[in-house]
């Protein structure tokens, strides 16, 4: 029996995971355009869309543009799915987190359809969102996203979407075809 390796210092693990997440998020120009950031607790992500005047749709109310809200929720869903894949690959040792940078990003899932339900108008302040992957198969995934502002219990928008997952390497991935 080989002796078990001592666990890595927590700061080393944190730094590696946060670095991979940052590379994933910052590699996408559109997340920067909208001013979206992600914070992480373990494998749970929370997205923040910082308030900016350019996100306003109705200047009289004022209210966030429905399109900006839709985009925010879609970005949150895609990052959640990509992060879940990346996390599994890093934890399983298939991907070296330190090697994830702007030029070595994982292939991203593609949106098949996305339905946004507008519950109340978006206020001119920061917005938050979390995505829940309800089903993630080898080819298709179904994700639900909830967006809120001041009050977590009063979401201002929610969305459901289906995504086509990128082909994956590894024992069950690759070019497995339709099987």
């Amino acid at each position: 029996m080989s002796p078990r390796r001592p666990p890595e210092p927590v700061q080393t693990i944190k730094k590696r995971r946060d670095g991979a997440l940052r590379a994933l998020v910052e590699g996408i120009a559109y997340t920067r355009f909208l001013g979206i950031e992600f914070s992480r607790r373990g494998d749970e992500l929370t997205a923040t869309m910082r308030y900016d005047e350019k996100l306003i749709g109705n200047p009289l109310l004022p209210a966030l543009h429905g399109g900006a809200t839709a985009a925010f929720l879609e970005v949150t869903a895609i990052i959640e799915l990509s992060w879940k894949m990346l996390w599994e690959d890093i934890e399983a040792g298939r991907t070296d987190a330190a090697a994830v940078d702007g030029r070595h990003l994982p292939r991203l899932p593609k949106t098949i359809d996305f339905t946004v339900d507008y519950l109340r108008s978006g206020l001119p302040r920061d917005a938050y969102a979390r995505a829940r992957v309800n089903r993630s198969g080898r080819r298709y995934a179904s994700v639900h996203v909830e967006g809120w502002q001041d009050n977590r219990m009063r979401p201002f928008a929610q969305a459901t979407g289906h995504f086509l997952m990128p082909p994956r390497d590894g024992p069950n991935g690759g070019n497995g075809g339709d099987g």
Binding site: I28, A29, Y30, H65, G67, A68, A71, E74, R107, L108
Partner: peptide, 24 residues
């Protein structure tokens, strides 16, 4: 516009930008 890119490997704009266009 480059700031709308959703997939850095292909340069394809993000679906969210298309959503914003459709909504408007």
């Amino acid at each position: 516009h480059e700031s709308l890119i959703g997939d850095p490997q292909t340069g394809v704009i993000h679906g969210g930008a298309v959503s914003a266009l459709m909504d408007t």
